[in-house]
Design a protein around this nucleic acid. Structure first.
Ligand SMILES: [Mn+2]
Ligand SMILES: [Mn+2]
Ligand SMILES: [Mn+2]
Ligand SMILES: [Mn+2]
Lengths: 217, 217
DNA sequence: TTTATTGTTTAGACAAATCTAAAAATTTAT
DNA sequence: ATAAATTTTTAGATTTGTCTAAACAATAAA
């Protein structure tokens, strides 16, 4: 079994390796809110346990074992988020910190029963896919809203930024999961997007558009 | 805020002080599965934080602050147990270890929403009372089954022993919460009890009878 | 009322996770 | 290619919770 802290490291290495592989020490330090020296220590320990492959000065990659462990934590995190939103009426910007703790509860029975209780959800409240118990993700066909052109239509199915500030902003604009949108125009000079959501005309910055995920249809 | 470990100490001191006050070092050591020396160290720390009053060689008592903290952990523990049994179909002998972890999740919003979601339960799956958010317990009128005499009737409303072995044993005998029972006879020579539960005649040892709580009616 | 026995505390050590400061390696710039 | 800047690692220290072994107190027995 891994400690709470080791699990957090594994999960963050997992997420970072979607962006760059191998994952660099400083990248981990920044995300985990700690110092590079501490990261090096922990990396050595995870390497001892064969959860990561580590090459000095080069960075880390997850081993198969490490990856499976990380995915399981992601699974738990996202299932708990669904629980909080669907059953306890949390808002989508309120769930992250609590799920950050709940993801470490050790009980396979609990996870499987929770999954069943929630009716086997495939995505969490931010549109992120929930892996099954074997670690397999259902592939979801997303495209960033910022990649669309005028006339394109689709449904908001996810976000790639989870800060409370961002989520509350979308809430205010009425741009929540499941909403259908249509692009009116992409402004040339700043890349901001004019769109229609529920008969409502709205303008969002390119920065915001980059973090909204759309299923075209 | 207290650490996970400090919370476990406070909760155990709380439970033990129902039996003896002040609570002795060795009693804590036994319950928390650690050595007396470690308990002394922790007690000093809790005393520093004014969560317990400590007199060397005498033992500890909880301060008002410590007691409220402990009751809040008990509240969370029992609410989670209800959740596991009522919503996730855990058996009453399967919930303890998971609740032991879940009780440490830090979020008042979570606890209050969970309470509401569970419809404000007053007792947990073992018949133990759940304090409200201010730390008040609804007084429940229990009597040990071992105190009853032949002819007495009542309902099983709690147990005072939570081991999986004991709970499974009761399950097998059909002596679960809510079952109505009637005492046929209390055997003189060993104190064992012959009783009727759902038309079924059963004999239980005095030891078992001492841990079953009855509401007479 | 000395002597055992038991219970509790202290002293000193250790593992886990963290830090600061300094050294070493790598990358970038000149 | 050499120097400068950046990144990463090491060395040594700190905090938290634990341990063993030894000292000390309180209680029970002789
Ligand atoms: Mn976490
Ligand atoms: Mn999420
Ligand atoms: Mn606990
Ligand atoms: Mn219980």
């Amino acid at each position: 079994m891994q400690s709470y802290t080791e699990e957090n490291y594994l999960k963050i290495i997992y997420h970072l390796s979607e962006i760059s592989n191998p994952v660099l020490t400083n990248a981990i330090a920044e995300r985990i809110q700690t110092k590079a020296a501490s990261v090096t220590d922990m990396i050595k320990k995870l390497s001892e346990k064969e959860l990561v492959n580590y090459v000095k000065y080069q960075g880390v990659t997850l081993t198969e074992k490490g990856k499976l462990t990380a995915i399981n934590i992601v699974r738990k995190h996202r299932l708990w988020e669904v629980f909080l939103v669907d059953k306890l009426n949390f808002k989508w910007d309120e769930v992250h910190d609590v799920a950050e703790e709940l993801e470490h509860i050790q009980s396979n029975l609990l996870v499987e029963r929770l999954d069943e209780f929630l009716d086997f959800p495939r995505v969490d409240p931010h549109g992120d896919p929930i892996p099954d118990k074997y670690g397999n993700f259902a592939e979801l066909a997303f495209v960033k809203l910022s990649k669309l052109n005028s006339g394109d239509k689709g449904t908001i199915t996810g976000v790639s930024e989870h800060s409370s500030a961002f989520l509350k902003h979308l809430e205010k604009l009425g741009l929540t999961l499941g909403k259908r949108i249509e692009i009116i125009e992409v402004l040339e000079f700043d890349g901001s997007v004019e769109l229609l959501a529920e008969q409502q005309k709205t303008n969002i910055s390119r920065e915001v558009a980059k973090h909204i995920l759309i299923t075209k249809n």
